[in-house]
Simulated assay, not measured.
Amino acid sequence: MQTLNNLPPELLRQRHTLRERILSVTAADFNATALAVFRYQAVYNPVYKTYLSLLGITPGQVTGLAQIPFMPIGFFKQHPVLSLAGVGITEPTTTFASSGTTGTQTSRHIVPDTALYADVSRRIFEQQYGPLTNFHILALLPSYLERNNSSLVYMVQQFIQDSGSAQSGFYLNDRDALTGHLRTLLQQDDRTVLLIGVTFGLLDWIEEGADLHFVGKSNRVIVMETGGMKGRRKELLREEVHALLTDKLALPAIHSEYGMTELLSQAYSPGEGLFYPGATMRVLLRDTNDPFCIYPETYTRTGGINVIDLANLDSCSFIETQDLGQFGPDGTFRVIGRFDNSDIRGCNLMASL
């Protein structure tokens, strides 16, 4: 069994060089770095390599991001998507899994380098919100805590550790304790409190009956929803969720995080659902009927969201999601909804693997 530390020297150097480029990537060199990662994964990721072959793609002829085929996200349910699997990387450090209802197949994301995930997610958050040491972090993520393989819980655990705050922590279902602790924190020091919660958990919290207007009056609380009802409540539009939360909490805006098990990079919205992707992330839109038709960034209508996630160095960085979105100004995007069909066209190509 090979590990990342005892790969053949030439391959180890190649991966290390890409890893360093990813950690320091800027907008100016994003395209070049993405193409380098594409060529690497086209050779060393067996699942993605087979997908490209079935599409008739010659990697050496791909010269721009719009030419890169994006792998349907459903492959994470069907296959072990792992770069370097062909040279013996068979025992990952960590495997993250998505939530799912009874009887449904969940996505599995093999991550042999969790340090890269931690470094990238920290950089993305701090570039938008400032140092984690400025925060107390309270997490209301009951559906994720009930599992032991959530990438979101892992990320928030790293954030709590990096914050250096002994007052940070997770809450399962004790929402009264959350309210009391939040009130106490706002009386103690001048750190900002980041309350990050799954949508149904935040809605359950504000319906407990307590007066929560002290949250907005403090000017020191960021409430961030991670999306999803996880089958616990009726699905609502993001605008409806935010309207309920801003009213009950007396806040001017609710922040949002866009991420998923299959991605190691995140995008954050400071309000109104307009997401700013992290430095290692780029969102493209595709035609809703032709997944291989990529729209220009000037496109003004809804399209399917494709994500380039450079942090997915050890899985696949080019993901065709099941989300629908629109471009916003200055590289931002909105998430409008999801495709009605659960299996995006393209998955059938891999059925014989």
Rank of each mutant, 00 (worst) to 15 (best):
Q2T: 07
N5C: 05
R21N: 11
I22D: 01
L23V: 03
S24I: 00
F30N: 11
A32D: 15
F38A: 02
R39T: 03
R39I: 08
G56S: 08
T58F: 06
A66G: 00
M71I: 10
V81F: 05
L82Y: 00
A85Q: 08
A85F: 02
V87I: 14
G88E: 09
P92D: 09
F96A: 14
F96S: 12
S99V: 12
S107F: 08
R108Q: 15
I110K: 10
V111N: 14
T114W: 05
A115K: 05
A115D: 12
D119N: 09
F125V: 12
F125W: 12
Q128K: 11
L138P: 00
L145N: 07
N148R: 10
D174L: 03
D174V: 01
D176H: 14
A177I: 00
L186V: 03
Q187M: 10
Q188M: 04
D190V: 05
I196P: 08
I196D: 04
V198H: 03
F200W: 13
G201M: 02
A210E: 15
F214G: 06
V215F: 10
V215R: 05
K217P: 03
S218D: 06
N219I: 06
N219A: 15
E225V: 04
K230N: 11
G231S: 08
L237F: 14
L244N: 13
L251G: 01
I254K: 00
H255W: 02
T261H: 05
S265D: 12
S265G: 15
Y268H: 14
P270M: 04
F275C: 06
Y276W: 10
T280N: 07
I294H: 06
Y299R: 12
I308E: 01
F318N: 08
Q322K: 12
L324K: 09
F327T: 03
D330V: 07
F333T: 01
N348A: 14
N348H: 11
M350C: 01
A351H: 11
